[in-house]
Write a protein that binds this DNA or RNA. Structure first.
Length: 285
DNA sequence: AGGTCGGCCTGGCAGC
DNA sequence: TGCTGCCAGGCCGACC
């Protein structure tokens, strides 16, 4: 699934290719992609516009256009954004939207499950939209163990659910949540508010370490994910626990388990990931 | 208000 | 072989 490392891999590949180009034409083939906006309306609004840059916030790809508007795209589960050299020759399976650039190349948004969406907003409204949904960027200097502690304080939700919540740390999804918790030696069912300062440092480091590994490997291609060139990432070969049920823990050798937390498959090592207890409220003096 | 759950959506695969 | 039914999960709205 596209999470921060996958989306950032695509952004890094596309940014130098699309900056300064013009979208000669945007063809929206699937009304679900532009919903609730009419496909033809969104197509007309983007066609002819110059591209300033390709950005990212959380798991959103941000196509920044001339004139102070941005097309925010979300890949959700099975979306891909491909740079296509020859639109005639490429296989158009699951094609939902097609951008023709002024250099003859095309950007294709493909999406088997059709969860992906795009939204055109003025930059001010976009900032509001993102601020309502997303918390800290993990690679910003604002993301510190102390900031993590402030977000987790008083929360009884399991650490796994806490990490999946985009309003906390933006960009972490099911894969990297499992990997981060393993790196931090923290049990996914531990209440978020139960972490002490050492745990906060471990989790902070675990999140960054897992995301960096994903970036180094060009993302994880368990099934649908491909980078902007259509190639697979290799992070799935480096997973420490995710999808490794029954295999030996790389740290202590115990058998990795799979449980369901918040309806999501969750992999962890019962041998070395510590289950914290809910912190007792400070008694009043 | 914080936490959980069902719905969106469909390809792929297990099971018969 | 071919059909059915279930699973995957990011995000959001409904509900407790």
């Amino acid at each position: 699934m596209p999470e921060l490392p996958e989306v950032e891999t695509i952004r890094r590949q596309l940014a130098p290719e699309v900056a300064g180009r013009v979208v000669r034409r945007l063809d929206v083939l699937d009304p679900l992609w532009s919903r609730p906006v009419d496909p033809a309306e969104l197509g007309a609004a983007v066609s002819g516009r110059g591209i300033r840059e390709m950005g990212r916030r959380g798991k959103y790809l941000l196509l920044r256009l001339d004139g102070g508007e941005t097309l925010a795209m979300h890949l959700r589960m099975t979306g891909n954004l491909l740079l296509v050299e020859d639109g005639e020759a490429a296989e158009a399976r699951f094609l939902r939207a097609r951008f023709e650039l002024d250099d003859g190349r095309e950007l294709w948004f493909t999406d088997a499950r059709r969860f992906g969406q795009a939204l055109l907003l003025g930059d001010e409204r976009l900032e509001e939209h993102l601020a309502e949904r997303l918390g800290l960027e993990p690679f910003s200097e604002d993301f510190t163990p102390a900031a993590l502690g402030e977000m987790a304080a008083g929360r009884s939700a399991p650490l796994k659910s806490f990490l999946l919540d985009q309003k906390g740390v933006a960009g972490v999804g099911n894969i990297y949540a499992d990997e981060a918790l393993f790196r931090a030696s923290l049990h996914p069912l531990s209440p978020a508010g139960s972490m002490r300062s050492g745990h906060l440092e471990d989790l902070h480091e675990g999140i960054l370490g897992a995301l960096r590994a994903g970036l180094d490997e060009g993302g994880a291609s368990i099934d649908d994910y491909r980078d902007a060139r259509g190639e697979r990432g290799t992070m799935q070969d480096e997973f420490l626990v995710h999808t490794r049920e029954g295999l030996a823990c790389p740290r202590c050798g115990e058998s990795i388990r799979r449980i369901v937390v918040s309806g999501r498959s969750t992999y962890f090592c019962p041998g070395c990931q510590v289950r914290l207890r809910r912190r007792r409220r400070r008694s009043r003096l």
